[in-house]
């Protein structure tokens, strides 16, 4: 709605805001999403006009939005697991420009992944970055990264020194959900078998603890180490919330020894298959399986009853 020449009074705007709020909720309750969206837009405009009328400036302050990385779950992050039914439309995610002069996101992810040394989820990547590297790395911004990288690789293969790519599932060599790796790693390291989630966790624990030993302690680092120590037998030796990196490394190594052999064998076998079956893009970004649907569907039908 374009603003009318005779600007409405704050009281009129308040009445209008109340009216529009009701309209939005009525529309949502009736399942009419389209109407709800339209009213919602008008509502935001009216709220903006109220701010302007009452407070006399248009901007909502300096919208600094770099800090959605931790604590606050970003809407897109949980979208994968969202229940299929009613899901209220999240408020439009605030889009802030990357602060100028900083390292681009993919470079920052690369730094964090190099430090971790194993396939990792956006959340861990963000925490590691926050603990050891300058600035922030919002986890929410990592979700579309892999797709961008794949597009870039397919249009100009190996044009970049490295790509941020997928971990491959050991059985189907398909992209594993929610894990990022670096293209320059050995293929074995980028495979994810049944035990790999655990061995990668332990590997990351060791590498991060080693890194922490070489640096001054900080609350962020302690918090990060605690996440590992609390979930590795024998790693939490001191008071709750405090971690001695050496003890964490020893405990993680001890458990890693239990799984490493089997995990390595499964990964090697899968990597061999990947080398034999997949082209370059497939090896980096995973096999596409949509064609399999019908095939598996039939076997399913046969042994069904």
């Amino acid at each position: 709605m374009p603003s009318s020449p005779g600007a409405p009074s704050p009281e009129e705007l308040e009445a209008r805001i109340a009216e529009l709020r009701t309209a939005v909720r009525r529309a949502m309750a009736a399942g009419d999403r389209q109407a709800a969206r339209a009213h919602r837009a008008e509502l935001r405009a009216a709220e903006g006009a109220w701010d302007e009328a009452v407070l006399g400036d248009t901007a909502l302050g300096d919208t600094a939005l770099g800090d959605t990385a931790l604590g606050e779950p970003a809407p897109d992050e949980t979208a994968d697991d969202a229940p299929s039914g009613e899901r209220p439309a999240p408020p439009p995610p605030p889009r802030a420009a990357v602060p100028r002069g900083l390292v681009p996101v993919r470079e920052r992810v690369h730094q964090a992944l190099t430090l971790i040394g194993a396939p990792a989820a956006p959340k861990l990547i963000a925490s590691v970055y926050a603990a050891f590297l300058p600035g922030q790395l919002p986890a929410a911004r990592l979700t579309s990264l892999r797709r961008d990288e794949e597009r870039s690789f397919r249009s100009a293969p190996y044009a970049r020194p490295y790509y941020l790519c997928a971990a491959l599932t050991a059985d189907l060599l398909a992209p594993a959900r929610g894990l990022l790796t670096v293209s320059t790693w050995p293929l074995e390291q980028r495979i994810s078998g049944p035990l790999s989630a655990r061995t990668d966790f332990l590997t990351a624990a060791i590498r991060i603890a080693e890194h922490a030993e070489r640096r001054p302690d900080s609350p962020d680092v302690q918090r990060l180490l605690w996440r590992f120590a609390a979930n590795i037998p024998g790693a939490a030796t001191g008071a709750v919330g405090t971690v001695e990196p050496g003890a964490l490394i020893a405990a993680a190594r001890a458990e890693l020894d239990v799984h490493a052999e089997t995990d390595r064998r499964q990964r090697r076998r899968a990597a061999d298959r990947a080398r034999a079956q997949l082209d370059d893009a497939g090896r980096l970004f995973g096999a596409r399986l949509r064609a399999m649907r019908s095939a598996t569907g039939t076997t399913d039908g046969e042994d069904d009853r």
């Binding site: 302050g61 600094a64 606050e72 605030p94």
Partner: peptide, 8 residues
């Protein structure tokens, strides 16, 4: 959450 300064 997004607001800073007097806007908060």
């Amino acid at each position: 959450d997004a607001a800073r300064g007097p806007a908060r």
